[in-house]
Design a binder for these strands. Structure first.
Lengths: 335, 335
DNA sequence: TTGACTTCCCAAAACGTTTTGGAGATCTAC
DNA sequence: GTAGATCTCCAAAACGTTTTGGGAAGTCAA
């Protein structure tokens, strides 16, 4: 549209001065600065982002890579988080790029292209795994990044995560206190960090209350996975009286399996999930769940990214958010 | 990392020739071309995107703006669609930018910034409204764009959409054929095009079968909205025997309301939704729904964008995808 | 008056591509 | 042999910023 040259000409100034005036340098007279700013507004001048990032050698953009496994992608609220994150980044003049990666093999290719091409100044990594090659790669290259979820070596990088371990420990403890003795866990694949930690919390609570049963079944983190898991668990010789599910999606599948076998969740068998999906309040019976007790994970994520880009140490940017129980109707006592 | 200058030096060629060799121009000798390409691979050269787009005067990026209304954002599968779209765009060297817009007022600001700054060559508009100022703005500016969903004047722009009207007409017709006489509609706000069209399909079917009842209730397209709508409809003096819901989320809320009043969906009262959410198969009873009968809306969206950027006329890029019924257990006959 | 300091401004050189407008060979046809 | 065609290649000029390294006035102290 309009550029510095035009702006400078129309003001009878040099490009340099106009540029510096807009950037608020101190070596331009206040009067001139205001004149320039007014003119810029009038011509609604916007710096050309390509030219700017060419010169500054920065992309002024953050990328988030989306592992597009066959099937669904993560919890449905995920887009909301990204959206909140993008909103905060935009305030800082940073674009948010969506980088879908096809399958786990293409993932690293995408990363290489991304970084060789300097298309982003920083990266958001989601769906972290305990041993995450993406994280290793980014650390080796020295690119700032923040992960959504922890890894085995997360003491060495910035991350934000909910305290799923404590959440599951709490939940299992409460179930035990309510008289449950066989508290089963419906687990998600254990290479995913969140799944690992939630299981760990469950185990810790079992240790705590001295229960020796270790009923569990691992399945994909979907409704179908939860259904399959519940089916299997219920046909054991000593079936569980409570199902602690890695995600609400799985819990919803489990509810369906219970119903099919004539059980009422919350009476014969307790069910608890995690994520507090919008639909959790509307299952039958309404699903007891838990959720991260912060309204703005996306924004916090952006904040950490910005801090990291500003040079803050990764060690100072490690947030574990508390998880709050959302009791509804399915966590009832053992009968 | 490495640039044309280095590459040219190491090959004893000029920058021009290297550039043209990589772009496959015909005025460079085949032997040279291959030598250059090999060297580029070896040094894993990637053109600097900022420099390229500065010179080409193109952003090599597509933006999608996300209206972040308070609360949830659209159907949960949405991110999957974007992901598929981004994947196809990446093959074409186009980045996908996420542009969250805060509230309906900030929306146009975001658009102006986006386009004044030439940050994107094309735009994806989602959650279209019947009278959509975003569309008007883009058309006025002459920026290529594709909408996901129709508008009142969609004959003048590229769009992709499911045939919700036919889907709802089918569904209502089938309900009538099964003996239902009071088929109510749980509508989403009518400024949203998809909501308008689905309602229209419902009305058409009622006309067709000569039903004069026009039971309906409009609410936000969420579980809570569906719950509220069902509550209201069921306490009318002549309550409906079937609930045709604008979305599965609403249908899930409606199911919950039915249960609360002691009804079994699919027996006393039929319920049908739209979207075929992953959880629809696991509600109690499993929710009858419908869905777009195409596996790759996201990819098709990308394809249209690419065609549009390639100069194809908007008129030739208007896709209405058929909607397929997904009968489960809640569309049962009137008793 | 002079020299040192400020204050305000600017010309020119980057950043890494693409594109324009040839230039020097080599070949073809007469 | 020579005029033109044809093949290869290249120097230089963009694209629109930011940044470097001053320079020309004006101010102040001696």
């Amino acid at each position: 549209m309009s550029n510095l040259k035009l702006l400078a000409q129309s003001l009878g100034l040099s490009i340099t001065t106009v540029s510096r005036a807009l950037d608020g340098y101190s070596d331009v007279a206040p009067a001139t600065r205001e004149r320039v700013q007014a003119a810029a507004r009038a011509m609604n001048y916007r710096p050309n982002p390509a030219a700017r990032s060419l010169r500054r050698r920065k992309a002024e953009a953050v990328a988030v890579t989306l592992p597009t496994e066959p099937g669904r992608f993560g919890p449905p609220i995920f887009l909301n988080m990204l959206s909140a994150c993008g909103q905060r980044l935009a305030e800082e003049g940073l674009d948010l790029m969506l980088l879908p990666t096809a399958g786990r093999s293409g993932e690293m290719d995408t990363y290489r292209r991304l970084l060789d091409g300097r298309r982003a100044d920083a990266v958001i990594v989601v769906r972290t795994r305990l041993e995450d090659e993406r994280v290793a790669f980014l650390k080796e290259r020295g690119i700032p990044f923040v992960t959504h979820g922890r890894t085995a070596r997360c003491d060495e990088h910035a991350f934000i995560d909910g305290d799923g371990e404590a959440g599951f420990q709490d939940a299992a403890r409460q179930l035990a206190a309510a008289g449950h003795r066989r508290i089963a866990h419906i687990a998600a694949p254990q290479d995913l960090t969140f799944a690992h930690l939630r299981r760990k919390g469950w185990l810790a609570a079992l240790d705590e209350v001295g229960s020796s049963d270790r009923l569990e079944y691992t399945a994909p983190p979907t409704e179908a996975g939860g259904y399959e898991a519940a089916q299997w668990l219920l046909q054991q010789s000593a079936p569980p009286t409570a199902l602690l599910c890695a995600t609400d999606s799985m819990a919803i599948g489990a509810l369906s399996a219970l119903k099919e076998r004539g059980f009422t969740a919350g009476r014969e068998i307790a069910v608890i999930g995690h994520d507090n999906l919008p639909s959790a309040a509307f299952t039958d019976p309404p699903l007891s769940s838990m959720e991260i007790a912060a309204p703005d994970v996306g924004r916090q994520l952006a904040e950490m990214l910005i801090a990291r880009l500003g040079g803050r140490e990764a060690r100072e940017l490690q947030t574990i958010l508390p998880v709050r129980q959302v009791p509804r109707a399915t966590h009832g006592p053992a009968n």
